[in-house]
Design a protein around this nucleic acid. Structure first.
Lengths: 145, 145
DNA sequence: GTTGACATTGACACTAGTGTCAATGTCCTA
DNA sequence: TAGGACATTGACACTAGTGTCAATGTCAAC
């Protein structure tokens, strides 16, 4: 599978694939004519890399945990795992956080609706009310990036 | 709370905080002397922003979501129901997007774990040829970034 | 053989996120 | 009053991720 097909399949540009290769993240084989040839495994690997980058990892970090992407190197792998779990934590906090504010917005819409409709029910006074319902403050350390 | 304390608490550099402000993501008040003063709410917001950036969102994207990230959003919210609903939409998209990324991360952690554990089954020795179950191809497509 | 689609490499450019330094101001404390 | 710690702004720089263009090679098809 040549670069264009591969890129299309992954939903990214050929440029990006070359970039990954340049960064040492993938090593597609080459045909006799020098064209890159992507095997299914290369595609999966590239897809994973794309996801990781989209999730905030740098090629450097990904490269560091490259051993984890293959079968060898359990040692380095644990580090990769920790990284991923750290990232997962961030996402979880973000999602929980987002859900809270989504609910707050919903509530606001509701009260707005109540205000508009005749089912009179006093509104909570000032607009500036629910100032911060979030248990944040203990985000974690910025660490690596 | 001054910038250094704030940065320390968040585990990032003061520079980053200024950068966020510069990008219009946070607006800490200023003391008489011109020093930035971070209120608890500012801290939480900054923490959230840091998480989003660490999770792969750009300041631009975050800025676009800004209206729905505020706790009260009273100012912008007075704009009306339509606005609120629009914000809700944005939020839902944001959450969905995040959930995708989270799931992708979870998947990756799982496959790492499988690689680590001695559940030795196949294992096609060849260089990089990850033996994996990867529903790739439908991750978040290149899209937004 | 010529054309056109697609590949290659390499260079240049732009944006985003950060670091760092310089010049200068503010404030606390000895 | 003099220092030192910490602020401010602004500039310059570096890295990463991408886009894009140029010069050139490969190959299929007319």
């Amino acid at each position: 599978m040549k670069i264009n097909e591969a890129a299309t399949e992954l939903g990214i540009s050929p440029r990006i694939l070359r970039h990954y290769e340049n960064a040492g993240l993938i090593m597609p084989s080459r045909d006799a004519n020098g064209y890159r040839s992507y095997a299914p495994a290369d595609l999966r690997r590239a897809g994973r890399i794309r996801d990781m980058i989209a999730t905030g990892f740098s090629t450097r970090e990904i490269l560091a945990m490259a051993p984890c992407l293959t079968d060898e190197g359990a040692g380095a792998c644990t580090a990769g795992l920790a990284d991923l779990e750290h990232k997962l934590d961030q996402m979880d906090r973000l999602i929980a956080d987002l859900r809270d504010r989504r609910q707050a917005t919903l509530d606001r819409i509701d009260s707005f609706r109540r205000t508009l409709s005749p089912s009179s029910d006093e509104r909570e006074k000032s607009g500036h009310d629910l100032q911060d319902p979030y248990p944040v403050s203990d985000r974690l350390s910025g660490g690596k990036r």
